[in-house]
Design a protein around this nucleic acid. Structure first.
Length: 206
DNA sequence: CGACTTTGACCTGCGC
DNA sequence: GCGCAGGTCAAAGTCG
């Protein structure tokens, strides 16, 4: 059940061709909710909006290679705007920004996508307006404080909302491999490519 | 035996 | 100030 326990953490659809077809059948990179965080524009998608987070539909995004602000901006629901909340629960009352925050919604039968990093689950919580539980993960790499939240969309359980918070301070085991794949395979499915780009925004290449 | 998940309790911020 | 909701902790259980 737990993909993050995969001894060879990787995106299934990039790590093993045997996984590509079955997984893609279940996968639809639908919305990217992007927050550049304190570092400002990271060059991926940045739009002028009252909210620091934007949702850009993959249709527009993929059509505008490099998306320069002409994407569809959606007003976030109250629930989604909570992504911008500062970290709570700091024992010393310290308010801390953990850095970049990237959230995206995918249509997937798989709850937790293996993104190439090793995650350790530290919490599970039922949230308001969502009958499904929200799962909390931390990057299990020593010294890495990146967190991930995974929940089923309360309005459409076919969608999974994944939120990454922070920047990995280490290399993804799959990073090099993925780069090779992008160069050597002319993927028609830009959704996959877009997702990886999004994730790599919080995992700068080494 | 170590790494991981589960789950209830606890903490904190926010709105009323 | 109080209650609610979200986020985190940590002990116990599970698994390989």
């Amino acid at each position: 059940m737990n993909i993050s326990q995969n001894p060879s953490p990787n995106f299934p659809f990039f790590s093993d061709e045997n996984f590509i077809n079955p997984f893609m059948d279940n996968f639809d990179f639908t919305d990217l909710i992007f927050d550049a965080g304190e570092g400002g524009n990271s060059g991926f998608i940045q739009e002028e909006t009252s909210s620091p987070i934007s949702i850009v539909s993959s249709e527009t995004f993929t059509g505008e290679s490099g998306g320069s602000g002409s994407g569809i901006t959606t007003t976030l629901s109250k629930r989604e705007s909570s992504f911008d909340c500062k970290s709570r629960g700091s024992k010393d009352g310290e308010t801390k920004e953990t850095g970049r925050r990237v959230a995206f919604r995918t249509r997937s039968k798989i709850d937790v996508m293996d993104d190439g990093y090793k995650w350790r689950k530290y919490g599970k919580k039922s949230v308001k307006n969502n009958t499904n539980k929200r799962n909390y993960y931390k990057c299990s790499n020593e010294g890495c404080t990146v967190k991930k939240r995974v929940e089923r969309d309360g309005e459409d359980a076919a969608y999974v909302i994944t939120t990454y918070e922070g920047v990995h301070n280490h290399e993804s085991p799959s990073h090099v491999y993925y780069s090779d794949m992008v160069l050597s395979h002319d993927h028609d499915n830009w959704n996959q490519h877009s997702l990886l780009q999004a994730i790599q925004q919080i995992s700068p290449p080494y």
